[in-house]
Design a protein around this nucleic acid. Sequence first.
DNA 1: ATGAAAGTTGACCTAAAAGTCAAGATTAAA
DNA 2: TTTAATCTTGACTTTTAGGTCAACTTTCAT
Lengths: 158, 158
Amino acid sequence: MKFSTQEEYGLRCLIQIATGTVAKPMTILEISQREGLTSTNVAKILHMLKNEGFIEGLRGQSGGYVLSRSPESIKVKDILDALGGNLYDDSFCERHAGSKAICAHDSGCSVRSLWQRIQEAVNDAIGDMNLADLMGTSRFQLKEGMVSLIQAEKVGRS
Amino acid sequence: MKFSTQEEYGLRCLIQIATGTVAKPMTILEISQREGLTSTNVAKILHMLKNEGFIEGLRGQSGGYVLSRSPESIKVKDILDALGGNLYDDSFCERHAGSKAICAHDSGCSVRSLWQRIQEAVNDAIGDMNLADLMGTSRFQLKEGMVSLIQAEKVGRS
DNA sequence: ATGAAAGTTGACCTAAAAGTCAAGATTAAA
DNA sequence: TTTAATCTTGACTTTTAGGTCAACTTTCAT
């Protein structure tokens, strides 16, 4: 059982954006330097996060990336789902059934219930954790009202 | 977050061996047919399981594979660890730190604590589950004393 | 002994994920 | 309007996990 690098890097990029975009949007270059990743790779990851609706790209000379909503409203579970997919879902049995299609319809498939059980445990553990919770141990902590400031800035521009 | 196919197939092969080897050792061909996998692939997986000490290969015309100890004493956690490695371990930060080595020694690494938290949840969920527990929903249930019969057969031969 | 059934080994092939590259399009500030 | 900084896109390369193949060794039943 492993995390994909997309999950790891995506989450870290999100945390960077969340903690760093108080004064101004955070650029790809900035994120790549802070996380030690190449800027092209960061660009790819951010593009994915944008498609999933977590962040927003602001173009132009003073552009960069910004959270599309408050960190409190972005659930860790949603992030992980978007970046790496679920541990267990309905397609799992098909992918792992081998040449026989016994798994999905066979009540004797005892492995499936184990995967489901583990999945539930993970979901419980993550629970209602959100992006703001992950920012707790970071150097810069977003304070009350900062997000709305960013939001206002965005609205004012568009 | 995904399971590797090794974890999936390995676990299923183990269950097959555990439930099927009451009368005689289970052959690679038999397992491959029941699970819909190629026999060469099953051979590779079983070899791995053997190296990890879960099963034992019996050679010769009436050979096959047998559990090396009772299904009650084989913990699911140990199986998963052997087949797929841990979700989080000490090498994780190195692998995912990018070019900077900030993660392992930086208390500001907020992602790490999340991974650890999830790992703990999984461990709790699996807890003391053993191979015998997974056999519960299978067609053939191993009954009291059967394992010792197999053990006796093995001892008698050597 | 001998042959058939079984496991063993290591090299090889394939497919999917991860990461890179380069050209292009968009935007805001001067 | 020009320029510089940004994002966007799609094709390409690299890496790694998964799976295959074929020759070999071991063992038991006859």
